[in-house]
Amino acid sequence: MLGSGIIKGLLETARNFFGSFRQPERLVTIEYPEQQRTVPENNRSFPFLVFDRNDPVKGLRCVSCKICEKECPPQCIYIETEKDSRGKPIKHPKVFDIDISVCMSCQICVEVCPFDSIKMDQTYELSQFSRYDALILHKIDLAKSNEYYHQIKPTEAGLVDEQLAAEREAQIAKAKAAAAIKVAPATASPTPKPPSPAPPAKTEVPA
């Protein structure tokens, strides 16, 4: 009969009306400043620099190789290398600026970094009152601890840590091997016969 659909519709809206009071899970709105959506792990906003050993200055993984600066498509990264007292460059950035008004969150800097020192952050509350200086993040703003990295991206950070640990072990092993080579000739030299204890030690070094 004409009008029965209206009654059905009215009942449906009444069910929604009272249901939204009785079942709070019906309300899908996330009331933003108080409630925050949990972002997925792969979410990315702008890059940050990872540091180890609770030392945001000395602990930075960045060695100021400037690969990211060169690769950045919109050229939003600016790096100056630190110099020691004799003017010789050392493996540490003196200035590391990212202009996040220019950055397009492409993650290329992260992909090209050979030292796992630059990663993508998840912060999004970055609005500022100024268009210019406030949106340029300096080294001290960019430096964030490895713990923070683990906190926002546990899987990726775990993998990075494993890889770094493997590299470090490889380096130690390499150093040991090198030391062994150095020691071997030294111990071998007094003996009358000079040839061949060293080469086998070298081949044992893992890749």
């Binding site: 809206t13 929604n16 009306f17 249901g19 939204s20 009071f21 019906r26 309300l27 899908v28 709105t29 009331e31």
Partner: peptide, 13 residues
């Protein structure tokens, strides 16, 4: 507020 509740929103608060 009522329309919000009908549409499962909290309405102006």
């Amino acid at each position: 507020k009522g329309l919000g509740r009908i549409q499962n929103r909290p309405g102006p608060n």
